[in-house]
Write a protein that binds this DNA or RNA. Structure first.
Lengths: 110, 110
DNA sequence: GCCCTAAATTCCTCTTTCGGCATATACTCA
DNA sequence: TGAGTATATGCCGAAAGAGGAATTTAGGGC
């Protein structure tokens, strides 16, 4: 764990990355892409949203460098470009699980 | 890296945790608390904001279980309660650094 | 060229959230 | 009890972000 002093600009960049991951639908999209590339249509079905909405979120994820876009014929395929997001999600899941377990214990001991 | 299927509710919880970390000021506060507990006044000075604003963010961080509050006399001290946030920040920093380095190389090779 | 399908873009509205300001609460000390 | 300091809270206005609906752009096949 590094201990650098972070500049104001660095903090903003980091915050932006977290903000990108702060929407359930975007997380859902990323989660769906774990098993490989998918087209916009496939993703739209997978996450149960509208096509324009999915396209908008895909654009944000791509602009941030998290996703990569590849066009094949008439359809666009999106792939994970930065797999560090999965470590992030796993870390958060682990932390939340632990917290919930602790809360459950406290509740049980009442 | 786990490969579980995440439920809609789990995605929302994870997204909420990321949202918590998506504000520069909150990151600043957490960063300042790396070296140990601080009072609200100290934090207000450290992050260069107003006291009410800092209090509000502290409350959110505490409600999420990221910070712990301890009152001593008239002043309140806040401490890191979930250090996994630092791994998160470090992972993001690493990813951003790599991306910037790559972008710089691409730019240099033009 | 024309039609069909896939994806992206624009406009709009609604909700959330940030920060400032004023105020309230709570603790200490005289 | 009264003054002073530390922290929390409530209210407001401004800005950002999400999703819906309609439309546009672009490719493929006839």
């Amino acid at each position: 764990m590094s201990n650098k002093k972070l500049s104001r600009e660095a903090l903003i960049l980091v915050a932006e990355r977290f903000k990108l991951l702060s929407e359930p639908l975007r997380l859902h999209i990323l989660h769906a892409l774990r098993d490989g590339p998918m087209s916009v249509n496939e993703l739209t079905a997978a996450v149960n949203s509208s096509q324009p909405n999915v396209s908008k979120h895909l654009k944000m994820l791509q602009a941030a460098g998290v996703l990569k876009r590849e066009q094949s014929g008439n359809t666009a395929f999106y792939t994970i470009a930065d797999s560090s997001i999965f470590s992030l999600c796993d870390t958060v899941c682990g932390s939340l699980e632990e917290k919930l377990r602790n809360d459950a214990e406290i509740f049980a001991s009442i």
